[in-house]
Amino acid sequence: MKNIIKLIAVLALFGTTSVSARDYISIVGSSTVYPFATLVAEKMASQGMKAPVIESTGSGGGHKLFCAGVGIEHPDITNSSRAQKDKEFKLCQDGGVTDIIEVRVGNDGIAFAYAADYEWKYTNGATMKGGIDLTKEEIWQAMARDNENAPTTWYEIDKRLPKVEISIMAPPPTSGTRDAFDSLVMKKGCVKDMLVADGDCKAYREDGHVIEGGENDELYVEHITKEQGAFGIFGYSFVSNNSDKVKASMINGVEISMEGIQDYSYPIARPLFFYIKKAHIGVIPGLMDYVNEFVSEEATEGYLLDAGLVQLSPADRAAVLDAISNQTNYK
């Protein structure tokens, strides 16, 4: 018994010896950027470097952790599926994180998708020519709580659409995809004439036609395959990886595609970012190696492209590379 206690005491002491320097990169932030960041991390690890630790905390959570301060207990990089908000920038300044490099890593599109084997048919049995095509305004009308018409079928929104009941599964408020969808579709597609007095453009209807899913894409797939004619909201990388299960609707007549997202001709596209804490460059080994690997041609035209990260246009890319090599603050 005494020996056991001694052993436990020694082991406990051994276990709690404090850590001094951190020799790996610590990354937090967006779950949309996460799959790409992890690919880069794995590439680094395969080259014999210490693999960065990447946490998927969501964009907002990432900025909060990132801005908390300078020092090894704080993360070096935060991923973000939107630009840093002014509020967050101020938080960083208050936390002593004054020098930040912004890196735009690529673009992402949001797909408004339905089950791949579903055919859009009118009540007379004729199929819709060329698949379904929606405008942002139509999507807004279908989803907004404060739309005074409150349509139940797509036909009620526009006569060219079939009489199929509106059913949409939307991401939860914690998701970066939801943030982007709200600002790109709900805000831009908001039809002021239909809005009830003091209405909120971004509020989703609560009468069962729009339901909130979780963060798990598989749940959305299950929903749209079970409920025929239902839509789900997905990131482009999921749609491109699972094209046998889901198919994206055209938006304003544009089909979702890599090129469309790159030049923003596809209307629901957004840039993806990560932010580097300048004070940690040179302190945390391999930090700039990670950054350079992320923006290298091997990555952006190779494995990241395969994973569904849409490349930047050449002009944007040049600006990003310039910012990295000069380590310029973005603000």
């Binding site: 992890t38 630790v53 905390t57």
Partner: peptide
């Protein structure tokens, strides 16, 4: 506490992520 992270290495100690 941040254990939901991508870690491609096999950890070898209590203080490794």
């Amino acid at each position: 506490i941040g254990m939901i992270a991508f870690i491609p290495n096999i950890p070898t100690g209590l203080t490794e992520p």
